[in-house]
């Protein structure tokens, strides 16, 4: 059981978290843009998240909080 929280308006859509996730459950949004005009990251399968925080470790902008 793990929970991700995204500070979505700070996301720059760089994709570093997407590459880092071992479960491949992160993707940039195809339907929305944030305040900065970037496609923010989303979790496509929250139940599959193992809470390893690899995504958060690679995020330059501290967008992701991970609970486990």
């Amino acid at each position: 059981m793990a929970k991700l929280t995204f500070r979505e308006d700070l996301c720059k859509g760089c994709g570093l978290c997407v590459t880092a996730c071992p479960k491949k459950i992160l993707a940039l949004s195809k339907t929305k843009l944030n305040h900065k005009g970037h496609a923010p990251v989303e979790c496509t399968d929250p139940a599959a998240c193992v809470g390893c925080a690899s995504c958060a470790l690679m995020c330059p902008d501290c967008v992701i909080t991970v609970e486990r």
């Binding site: 059981m1 929970k3 925080a53 470790l57 501290c62 909080t65 991970v66 609970e67 486990r68």
Partner: peptide, 17 residues
């Protein structure tokens, strides 16, 4: 659930440029 990763306290809330 416990927090395993969050923004460190010594950083302000100013978004990086």
């Amino acid at each position: 659930m416990a927090i395993v990763f969050q923004k460190p306290k010594s950083l302000t809330d100013v978004p990086y440029h």
